[in-house]
Design a protein around this nucleic acid. Structure first.
Length: 290
DNA sequence: CATTACCTGCAA
DNA sequence: TTGCAGGTAATG
């Protein structure tokens, strides 16, 4: 469920954890949330540690502990991190509870059990950095980067954008939003992007992600931040969801449509995001018109 | 490349 | 009852 803006919203909402000490650990029925680490080992390693800082990279959240170890969290589809009073009963689908010395606690809950909270000992090499492209809001991500990266690629632009090695943090919602803003068809072969397309798409990606953060993420079914608060960005989406429902394009009024790209439902406007076929002389596309 | 697996709940 | 869901790793 959570993409970059949702994970960033969680990170910000968890700032009250900074400086607090983990006084105990409870692990639920699904110990697989810890990956390979045995529950008893995990408990021994993190108990007594305090939270030094919270960082995010792409869709990953890093909880740095005061001995240089860290917890690497990925929420995947339905993971949630929540702060709750220590004596609150376990919430539904709770797999992990870290009790804190101030009477509060952090819970990890995950209906579908895809997410992970991994313990990384002090000095561990970062296991995700090499697999991630630039942050969409960083200067490293711009039209030139996207243009160069997409050269000679035949994959649909949507697939390229979903690949975390290209850009870190976009998922199905924000890719559809970025493509709509840039007026690009999700199936356009990435290598066919012009420099101008790439420039527009990079700006659009930044815009979609920035709006997502500003509105504290999209809550459609599961997402809540660390305080249990829903996001508001579902009210500011231009593309995602509108194709399936056949709602009009907010730019040109044409009914939106959808298809499957890279295994994901993709919502777009068939008019202003029309696919250009470079082989044909006749303009299949009217995207210049919009 | 595209498809499947990993899980569960819920809407159609 | 079937199909779908915001993600990713492992398959053909």
């Amino acid at each position: 469920m959570p993409e970059l803006p949702e994970v960033e919203t969680v990170r910000r909402s968890l700032m009250p954890l900074i400086g607090k000490t983990i006084s105990g650990v409870e692990i639920g029925a699904f110990a697989g949330v810890l990956g390979e680490t045995a529950p008893e080992a995990f408990s021994a390693l993190v108990s007594g540690r305090s939270v030094a800082c919270l960082r995010r990279r792409g869709k990953y959240l890093f909880i740095d502990l005061d001995d240089e170890s860290l917890l690497l969290v990925h929420l995947r589809m339905t993971g949630q991190l929540l702060i709750a009073p220590c004596d609150d009963p376990p919430r539904r689908f709770e797999h992990l509870k870290l009790a804190l010395d101030d009477g509060s606690s952090v819970r990890y809950a995950d209906q579908r059990k895809f997410g992970r909270v991994l313990y990384l000992p002090p000095g561990s090499p970062n296991p995700v950095e090499t697999k991630l492209g630039p942050e969409p809001l960083s200067d490293a991500f711009d039209g030139a980067y996207l243009f160069d990266y997409s050269r000679k690629r035949t994959a649909p632009i949507k697939s390229l954008l979903l690949d975390q090695r290209s850009i870190a943090g976009l998922g199905n919602i924000y890719v559809d939003e970025a493509l709509w803003l840039a007026r690009l068809h999700p199936l356009m072969p990435a290598g066919q992007l012009t420099a101008q397309d790439a420039e527009r798409l990079a700006r659009s990606g930044k815009q979609a992600i920035a709006a997502g953060i500003e509105h504290r993420g999209v809550t459609i079914s599961h997402f809540v931040d660390g305080a249990g608060e829903s996001g508001e960005n579902q009210h500011h989406l231009n593309a995602y969801g509108r194709g399936r429902r056949g709602e009009p394009c907010l730019r040109c009024g044409t009914p939106m449509t959808w298809l499957t790209v890279g295994g994901r439902t993709s919502h777009f406007c068939p008019s202003c995001q029309a696919l250009v076929d470079p082989e044909s002389r006749g303009p299949i596309s009217n995207r210049r018109r919009c």
